[in-house]
């Protein structure tokens, strides 16, 4: 985003809203197993909170995740998901069989841990991809202007 289209009203609203949107995203991801929510919804909320600031303030905001960091975020999310899936193989379980590693005595506690880990991975991947697609569509559209 080279030119922001924020006015004083938009900027005041974004300043007030963005921290709460990001906090709500963290809540939605972490409570995905006990209330409505989950990785996809939380990831989209996280990306929306960052895009709100990016849209109102433009490049000078210095408060954003750039395309390079967004790509790293998306890759780490997918790798976290696949890595959690691979972990039980070391203890003779099948792929994504969370209760194979002998971490806790209660297999249900291990399944909750695996579920939350996967939700976090999905949230990182979704947030990174949405930020990346937005950057690609909004920032790099005209090659003539951006040297």
């Amino acid at each position: 985003m080279k030119q922001p289209f924020g006015s004083a009203v938009l900027e005041a609203a974004a300043r007030l809203l963005a921290p709460f949107v990001l906090l709500f995203a963290a809540y939605v991801v972490s409570h995905g197993h006990s209330s409505p929510g989950g990785g996809f919804q939380g990831g989209v909320l996280f990306a929306a909170g960052l895009l709100l600031v990016k849209l109102t303030r433009g490049d000078p905001s210095q408060w954003e995740i750039g395309p390079r960091a967004a790509l790293v975020l998306a890759c780490s999310g997918v790798l976290l998901f696949a890595g959690i899936g691979l972990l039980p193989l070391a203890w003779g379980g099948s792929y994504l069989d969370y209760d194979a590693p002998p971490l806790f005595a209660d297999p249900v506690a291990e399944r909750v841990l695996g579920t939350v880990g996967i939700e976090v991975g999905v949230a990182l991947a979704v947030a990174g991809i949405i930020l990346l697609v937005f950057d690609a569509l909004a920032g790099w559209g005209e090659p003539e202007r951006s040297a």
Partner: peptide
Amino acid sequence: TAIVVGVSTSGVALALILRIHR
């Protein structure tokens, strides 16, 4: 999952449209 896949296919389609317009 279908909603998120729909968002990403829309992103790819918009990128293609941008290239066609360019």
